[in-house]
């Protein structure tokens, strides 16, 4: 297709809490938690950070990599399940902060952890149809897990922004394919602070069914075998799920490990698979084929078959890479984490 990826940028808050520190509070065996989830630590937003600020920082890092005038961006979509306002878009604040307003359209998306890739698909459609020159799709979240819930070890914060256009592409989008059903594996009702999930039900009928069906669907449609793909990236609710999905589909470690980011930052929800893709783009030099499949509870998966171009070499060093966000960090105690997360109510 004509539209592809022109640039990318991520942002991950610098605060971390280890799975060990959380396990200690709830009387769990830290080793069992670490080995069960394959999550060593997760990112935590600063006291003045939210989905809006994370989206703006990711968008700025995306724009920093290229010479695109932000006023040429015709659409901004922000996918998240933690928009700070129930009514009032995150996307307008991002548009204003990067100087893209006022001649643009904007909307906030919600589809659990896959709203960011939904924004990419919308942008691809608008660029392909000629309605806009550039579209900016962002996936960002400050995910919440109730204290003591297994989600508390994984729910983290981060954002990724992708600029979609038809010129100077760093990756061609060869195809995109979605697989969607009504599956109640994870939800949060309006006005409630924490999501609920159906425990083990989130595995086979939800994550694996959708990730595998979407990934198989796009590979079959394009007559491409796993061995012809250089890197594969999936949504990462924990370390085990994406690795198991990759093995089930016939991928090897060297194909899926470079895109595994959850072990070091936790599950960044709408940003999860997109930060994984960014980590892969960081190590690409042009010519690589990449399969990206997101997953959002509720449930659905968006698959993308990408071919990285030589342009990646020119832009990847112009904004902070995933490895830089991993290097700069500060560890929190469980008490500090509660304070930053607003879980301690002041009178």
């Amino acid at each position: 297709m004509k539209a592809g990826i022109v640039s990318y940028g991520i942002y991950i808050p610098m605060y971390r809490i280890t799975a060990r520190e959380i396990a200690k509070i709830w009387g769990k065996d830290p080793k069992e938690i670490e080995n069960g989830l394959l999550i060593k630590e997760k990112s935590v937003p600063g006291i003045d950070e939210d989905t809006v600020t994370i989206s703006v920082e990711a968008a700025r890092n995306c724009i920093k990599r290229v010479r695109v005038d932000p006023s040429e961006i015709g659409a901004i979509f922000v996918g998240s399940e933690s928009h700070p306002y129930a009514v009032k878009p995150t996307a307008t604040i991002v548009g204003e902060a990067i100087g893209a307003t006022p001649e643009m359209t904007a909307a906030d998306y919600e589809f659990a952890c896959k709203a960011g890739t939904a924004g990419i698909q919308t942008s691809l459609g608008l660029v392909n149809s000629g309605m806009i020159k550039y579209g900016l799709a962002i996936g960002a979240d400050t995910a919440q897990g109730a204290p003591g819930d297994p989600l508390e070890y994984s729910a983290s914060a981060g954002g990724a922004a992708f600029l979609i256009g038809s010129k100077d592409k760093i990756a061609e989008v060869l195809d995109t394919y979605s697989f969607t059903t009504d599956t109640p594996d994870f939800w949060r009702r309006e006005g409630k602070a924490y999501p609920r999930h159906a425990g083990r039900f989130t595995g086979a009928p939800a994550y694996f069914k959708h990730i595998i069906s979407a990934s198989r669907g796009i590979m079959e449609r394009n007559s491409i075998e796993p061995k012809e793909i250089d890197y594969v990236v999936f949504h990462q609710p924990n370390g085990k799920f994406p690795m198991r999905a990759a093995k089930l589909l016939g991928f090897e470690k060297e194909q899926y490990l470079p895109g595994i980011v959850v072990t070091q930052i936790g599950n960044t929800y709408s940003a999860s698979s997109l930060i994984g893709l960014s980590a892969v783009l960081d190590v690409c030099n042009g010519g690589e084929k990449v399969l990206l499949t997101s997953f959002g509870s509720g449930a659905g998966s968006d698959s993308f078959l990408l071919e990285v171009t030589d342009k990646i070499v020119e832009i990847k060093d112009k904004a902070p890479k995933f490895s830089e966000f991993i290097r700069r960090k500060k560890y929190l105690s469980y008490g500090e984490y509660l304070k930053l997360s607003g879980k301690i109510k002041l009178s």
């Binding site: 600063g46 003045d48 950070e49 939210d50 809006v52 600020t53 703006v56 920082e57 700025r60 700070p84 306002y85 604040i93 902060a97």
Partner: peptide, 20 residues
């Protein structure tokens, strides 16, 4: 420069974003 929440008009009011 970073982009952050600066203040808010209580739990129901507007959130003021800006530079830090």
């Amino acid at each position: 420069l970073v982009f952050r929440r600066v203040s808010e008009d209580g739990e129901e009011g507007i959130i003021y974003y800006g530079y830090k």
